[in-house]
């Protein structure tokens, strides 16, 4: 597969909108057990945070809590610098283990749906579904039913979902799972570009992601 012949640099967004994800004294329980306690960090536009830790340390729990899917026992999660009335949940993308794709629909139909469902005001940083599929190297499969695709290809379509609607905060749970080497390199490039557009990334992973000067948060050390 050629390496993204259609690659073109997106117009650089003004750095004017500086956002800051601030997490303070966060405590989250799952299944009655307190998995995360007293966690705090902050992340600014253009920064990336790698969350590491052994299995069961609470990486996925942290991401689900940041995505608003788990109730907080204590603490605060806020995105500062957002426009008035912008909900925190409308500022983030969540990539979980499940890809969020409907098997009977084609790749393009899935992406069009998420673009319409998640999208708000038109944003020039959002890509068309076709363009997003090109960026993950799957343009030739846009009319194929997702049921026919491999796990890695589905994962890449899920990544393309992050591109069809621009949202500044990406929460990535094991983004490299099922991806081959070329796709990992592509993912690293997408993440770099997202940061250049003023985005923020929080990624839980066991593997190097190829992110430059990313900060690291090790979970489960003190438990």
């Amino acid at each position: 597969m050629t390496d993204d012949p259609h690659h073109r640099s997106r117009p650089h967004a003004a750095r004017a909108f500086a956002l800051r994800l601030r997490v303070e004294e966060l405590a989250v329980a799952r299944g009655g057990r307190r998995v995360i306690a007293g966690l705090g960090f902050s992340l600014e536009s253009g920064e990336a945070l790698i969350v590491t830790g052994r299995n069961g340390a609470g990486k996925s729990t942290l991401l689900r809590a940041l995505a608003g899917l788990l109730p907080r026992l204590a603490g605060r999660i806020a995105i500062e610098g957002a426009q008035e009335g912008e909900e925190t949940l409308a500022l983030l993308h969540y990539l979980a283990h499940a890809d969020g794709l409907k098997a009977p629909l084609t790749a393009r139909e899935n992406l069009e749906f998420w673009a319409q469902f998640l999208g708000g005001e038109p944003d020039r940083r959002s890509l068309e579904p076709k363009e997003a599929l090109e960026r993950v190297g799957l343009a030739h499969l846009s009319e194929t039913q997702v049921a026919m695709l491999s796990a890695g290809q589905k994962r890449r379509i899920a990544l393309a979902r992050l591109l069809v609607v621009f949202r500044p905060l990406w929460l990535l749970d094991e983004p490299t799972s099922a991806l081959d080497a070329a796709s990992r390199a592509r993912l690293a490039r997408l993440m770099t570009e997202h940061r250049a557009l003023g985005g923020m990334i929080v990624a839980a992973t066991h593997e190097p992601l190829g992110l430059e000067d990313a900060r690291e948060l090790a979970l489960g050390k003190n438990s």
């Binding site: 608003g68 969540y94 499940a98 969020g100 794709l101 409907k102 098997a103 998640l118």
Partner: peptide
Amino acid sequence: LEDGSLDLFHLGRA
């Protein structure tokens, strides 16, 4: 729920 769409419904604008 199984394909992960349910989690993403929470993030929609509706």
